[in-house]
């Protein structure tokens, strides 16, 4: 829903005081921004303006500006390097949208003229390989697989060999979902990275952490741990077509400063958009309604 009431031409004005700041803080908290970051944003807004009379639209604009200012430095598309194959490892907790995002990205890169290969590194979950195979067909990209239960690290290694042989520009590696507090599964991920580096010490060139917009404050822990284990180079946030605002991205930008490459806005192959800080801020503050 909207964060603030709709503005009209001769909107009533209200004094920016502690009471109003607290209300604004709560609006931000309701977007999953977290208490600390919400406080920081509202105190930035307040600076030099306490006691001024502002309309609802002015307040929203101010708030959106503050948020966009934090988000602008992290809005960067996934970098493309001259290295062939450029290895893109995709990681994240269960069900966040890794496999779907790989399908969407593969389609975009293929459309941009790249030769793409996908490796089905989720050898654990039921029918994960079949799911990715359908995405491969949709994107028109080959999918390298290994039987269920086999070692994902050795699949990644084999996939690198194959991608090299075939002269692929991009190798995208899917991984099984794992919660960041499961040290055994995080060690498995660390091993995947180690094995990839045996083949090419500069790889993986991108490690994308896929976050679900409906997730609350746990996203902070997710980024923290995945970053330590697998050297995350960028984020993708999915499911922003729902009503969750993804406010935690502001807290993440503030704390970790990792680039945000793209956002998922649906289940179809084209439902992946660049991250636009102004649009994001407008949606978060209700300025877009």
């Amino acid at each position: 829903g909207r964060l603030l009431g709709r503005g009209t031409t001769d909107e009533p004005r209200r004094v920016l005081d502690d009471d109003m700041l607290e209300q604004l803080e709560e609006l931000l908290i309701a977007s999953d921004m977290g208490v600390d970051t919400a406080l920081r944003i509202t105190s930035n807004m307040a600076e030099g303006r306490v006691g001024k009379r502002l309309s609802a639209t002015e307040i929203k604009e101010l708030m959106a500006q503050e948020i966009a200012r934090v988000m602008e430095p992290v809005a960067k598309p996934m970098p493309i390097y001259s290295k062939r194959p450029q290895v893109v490892l995709v990681v994240g907790v269960n069900g966040s949208g890794k496999t779907t995002t790989i399908g969407k990205l593969a389609s975009q890169f293929k459309g941009a003229g790249k030769k793409v290969v996908i490796a089905a590194g989720d050898t654990f979950r039921a029918a994960a390989v079949e799911q990715l195979q359908v995405w491969g067909e949709r994107a028109g990209v080959p999918v390298l697989t290994a039987p269920e239960g086999s070692d994902p690290a050795s699949l990644a290694f084999d996939a690198m060999t194959r991608a090299q042989e075939e002269g692929a520009d991009l190798l995208m590696i899917d991984t099984a979902g794992r919660l960041q507090n499961r040290s055994d599964l995080m060690e498995e991920l660390a091993k995947i990275v180690r094995v990839i580096r045996k083949k090419d010490e500069t790889a993986p060139h991108n490690t994308l952490l896929v976050l679900d917009a409906t997730t609350g404050q746990n996203a902070l822990n997710q980024v923290d741990v995945f970053r330590k284990i697998s050297d995350v180079s960028g984020l993708v946030m999915t499911k922003l077509d729902g009503t969750a605002k993804g406010g935690v991205l502001v807290a993440l930008a503030d704390k970790f400063g990792l680039p945000i490459h793209a956002i998922g806005v649906g289940e179809q192959i084209d439902d992946l958009a660049p991250f636009d800080p102004e649009e994001f801020a407008a949606a978060l503050t209700g300025l877009d309604t």
């Binding site: 908290i29 309701a30 999953d32 409906t214 997730t215 609350g216 009503t243 969750a244 935690v248």
Partner: peptide, 12 residues
Amino acid sequence: VDGLTGQVAVEV
């Protein structure tokens, strides 16, 4: 429902 869900849980 995902136990990691944030503020949107109520609405959902």
